[in-house]
């Protein structure tokens, strides 16, 4: 461990178990660390879990599953790809992934923002939720695999498809299956059969463009690209057609 300045710390995570690493993070944050750089991260799970201050955690390597799960405030930046379950039930903070992220990214998130530069795996944003001012956002620069936005109950999910070639379509199927809250914005378009039965398609309103523009602006800042160029394309909005799509499923 290197103490660069009083509040800036570098930790070599090579060979450190996930429990010891998270214990160390807890200690350092309790002692007032404001920025922690983790080097040689390789599969350690739950990084940043149960931290509740806005500490910046920069990860070099490949963090393990459930990155930032349950966290409440930290700003995690990953220089590499993330695995499955990033932002699991996070309450506040940010996760910025300079690469792709795996399955169930942002699952059950209750607040905070997740920005993924490239693609995400299956079921991104599954059961994200919102309450009053707690409104999570998941911004995906590339494309998603199937069941993106599944059972979404709140929040904002944005699918930019920036790495799609000219004329290439989003490949995800079952988009928004079981969705009953929140909003999905998709750059480009999708076929009717790719959508879950519970979502409707609409044009964006001015309010939508304002919300979208803010998140795209943040995305462009994080990954150094041109927000105007991204916004200068057609988008569609997916919304939940019912608040309780399965309300009658088990009512006999």
């Amino acid at each position: 461990m290197i103490q660069t300045t009083e509040n800036e710390i570098t930790i070599d995570a090579a060979g450190v178990s996930f429990r010891d690493l998270n214990t160390k993070l807890r200690e350092k944050v309790a002692c007032g660390a404001e920025k922690i750089v983790l080097l040689n991260v390789c599969g350690q799970r739950y990084i940043g879990t149960d931290l509740n201050s806005p500490v910046a955690i920069n990860i070099v390597g490949t963090p393990g599953n459930n990155l930032g799960s349950f966290m409440d405030g930290p700003q995690i930046t990953v220089y590499g790809n993330a695995q499955d379950g990033s932002g699991n039930t996070m309450n506040d903070g940010q996760i910025i992934v300079h690469g792709h992220a795996g399955d169930i990214t942002g699952l059950a998130a209750r607040g905070g923002n997740i920005f993924v530069r490239d693609d995400v795996g299956y079921r991104a944003g599954i059961h994200m939720k919102e309450y009053e001012d707690k409104k999570p956002a998941l911004v995906i620069g590339g494309t998603a695999q199937d069941f993106v936005g599944e059972y979404m109950a709140g929040g904002v999910l944005i699918l930019l498809g920036l790495n799609l070639k000219q004329g290439e379509h989003h490949r995800a199927n079952y988009i928004g299956t079981g969705m009953h809250g929140g909003i999905i914005y998709i750059r480009g378009t999708v076929e009717e059969y790719q959508l879950g039965k519970e979502v409707g398609v609409a044009e964006l309103t001015e309010d939508d463009y304002r919300v979208l523009g803010e998140y795209v602006g943040d995305y462009a800042d994080h990954f150094d690209c041109d927000a105007k160029q991204i916004m200068n394309s057609s988008f569609i909005k997916l919304y939940p057609r019912y608040l309780r799509p399965y309300g009658r499923l088990y009512a006999y």
Binding site: C42, G61, T62, N81, Q83, D84, H100, D103
Partner: peptide, 18 residues
């Protein structure tokens, strides 16, 4: 099952995908 296991023994992959 996890990308990190590959990166441990081959940090500079030509390509990694899901």
């Amino acid at each position: 099952s996890e990308e990190s296991a590959i990166r441990l023994i081959c940090p500079d992959l030509d390509k990694a995908w899901i």
